[in-house]
Design a protein around this nucleic acid. Structure first.
Lengths: 343, 343
DNA sequence: TTCTCTACTGTGAACGCTCACAGCTCCCCG
DNA sequence: CGGGGAGCTGTGAGCGTTCACAGTAGAGAA
């Protein structure tokens, strides 16, 4: 005697066959409903949808991927040690924006971190094996081999920020040069004359382009561009503090400071305060990014807004169109001066 | 006439068939080599491995998943707004540790963030649909519905930290109570008598248990446990600063402070400095976590080390064994006092 | 009426893998 | 010397989809 008669296949997940049987149609029709509903009669579509609701059917993505050759997911790939990114408030906004933009297309975003060359190799292999349809690449420094490897493997890649190498790579970036021009122009217009700058690393486009904007505006205003007013740091709070200390040491007559990131500007504010300089009375300070750090610092930071929300949606748009076979493209988005209390 | 005779299937990825043909064996043998190499002669294994190298073969995980029913990936799921986690240095260490521990098993870790109830629902559905083999759940607050939903759907889940609800959930946590006992014991032994505490949120086990340890030690030392020496904050730097200011206002006679996280302790140090108190001479400060914040603060923070590296490897171990069908289990790891300069 | 075109539907064949099974050889033990 | 087991191998089936194709019905044109 069978003790559990009603339990031959307990809790098997319903397949497309079950839905088809339930709806009284064929597999093909169910599949068509699932994929856009073209060439399906209204009555059949209705029956299929009812059957899907009734059975609680969910497509098996593995089966679908096997035949379509697509995984239905994308990667958010960091090719530098993660600490740097996590500390940076911009990163939060970018990640969140990309996740949401992809969620609208029902594409989950896998966050991958490849700090060491070893990890880079492993992940490149993994991605190149087709486990991900496309990559949002967050890498700033020159000579990052990952982008090239992925492109060679035929994987759609979109970078955040202008790539430094000569590779023709799809990317989305803010207009760093113009943002710097706006900020330094603002400082000049306020009557500042001895304007220093703390740049980002000069193997990143943000570092180079913001410095270029600074130089241009000074030159246009007829002010000398002096080397001892220029210090390079690494976008971190501590780096910004150290650079500012050095600058202040070299040029005690400083009356304004353009810092290439809000985080570094926070470090700068601390150093200036400890040195007894009032901001903005003695030294005006301008940041870059309009990150959360800008609002929480005291005084509130005058900064340059990067349109992170638009950057993320654009990155996703470019990636998806590239996955659909379109050519690579580049998008540069405008930046905007945000005047607050520090300058 | 065929114009491109040599190009019928350009750049097709090699399959197990190609490897089998190349090695002169059958599909079955190749599959066995791929899955551990049992019941394969050394000669055959050698031939297969050579063929894999030659063809550049990589398994198609979609095909494998289709039959095994496993995805070969795991999720790192945050059920709270991401900002909080990213700011916290502990989170970096935990994420990195888990990623590495899983990488050793060739299991990629998908980072998922479910800040809103809406996102939680979407991701729960996604995970329950079988797209991930298991979940490392980072959620601290009481009444988080995600854990229960996942468990009900039969998904292996391991939590970081003791769950507050009554659910019997697999988890890995540090011994918060004992860590607090060590720290407060240290303060008492140093002759401190008016010891305040800044606790974590009281709907997290870290908040509750560390407070419990504080209370116990004071009671055991014959010191009064006074309510106005206890303030609750939210683990953030700012929250810690605000709580300390309140405490100092209420009890100017404070001679020691046990702060339930290093980040909050950093905030506390700032407030104490501005209030003109010397640390540790006037007020001894003890943190919790031994995060990077502890070393970078001035003075270097005496704190309680949470074994994050072991926590992450244990989480992965418990998750994998649960995926393999073992029962859920809980692991509590020891904490350790790290004496530095602040107490 | 017949023919063509469009809208819709069902069916077989993949996709690339693992699993179960059957078959083979060889060795050890009774 | 026969039987049983261990070690190794190949084969067929099937996982749950999508895709291409063949086919049907009905509408409209010739």
């Amino acid at each position: 005697m069978n003790v559990t008669p009603n339990n031959p296949a307990r809790r098997r997940r319903p397949t497309i066959h079950d839905v088809a049987r339930e709806a009284g149609v064929s597999r093909g029709t169910v599949s068509r409903v699932l994929n856009g509903g073209h060439y399906v009669s209204p009555a059949a579509a209705e029956a299929v949808n009812a059957a899907i609701r009734k059975t609680g059917y969910v497509v098996n993505r593995h089966a679908r991927s096997l035949i379509t050759g697509r995984s239905g997911s994308a990667a958010f790939l960091l090719t530098e040690p993660q600490e740097k990114f996590f500390e940076d408030p911009n990163f939060n906004v970018l990640l969140r924006g990309c996740t949401q933009a992809l969620a609208a297309h029902d594409i989950p975003l896998l966050l991958m971190i490849a700090g060491s060359r070893e990890e880079q190799r492993r992940l490149t292999r993994y991605i190149a094996a087709g486990h991900v349809d496309g990559v949002l690449l967050i890498s700033s420094h020159t000579g990052d081999p990952v982008a090239e490897e992925l492109v060679r493997a035929g994987i759609p890649v979109v970078m955040c920020g202008k790539p430094m190498g000569r590779t023709r790579l799809a990317h989305v970036a803010a207009d760093d040069r113009d943002g710097a021009r706006q900020m330094v122009g603002h400082l000049v217009a306020a009557g500042r004359r001895r304007i220093g700058t703390v740049t980002g690393p000069l193997d990143t486009s943000g570092g180079v382009d913001r410095l270029a904007g600074y130089r241009e505006v000074l030159a246009e205003a007829g002010l000398p561009v002096e080397d001892d007013l220029i210090v390079t740091a690494d976008y971190s709070r501590e780096g910004g503090a150290a650079a500012t200390a050095r600058l202040l040491d070299r040029r005690p007559d400083l009356d304004a400071l353009f810092v290439a990131s809000d985080l570094m500007a926070q470090g700068a504010l601390g150093v200036l305060e400890r040195a007894g300089r009032r901001v903005p009375e003695d030294v005006a300070v301008g940041g870059f990014d309009d990150s959360t750090a800008a609002l929480s610092s005291r005084p509130a930071l005058t900064t340059v807004r990067q349109p992170w929300d638009r950057i993320s949606t654009e990155m996703v748009r470019v990636l998806l169109s590239q996955i659909d076979g379109d050519a690579t493209s580049a998008v540069i988005l405008p930046t905007e001066l945000v005047p607050r209390d520090s300058a």
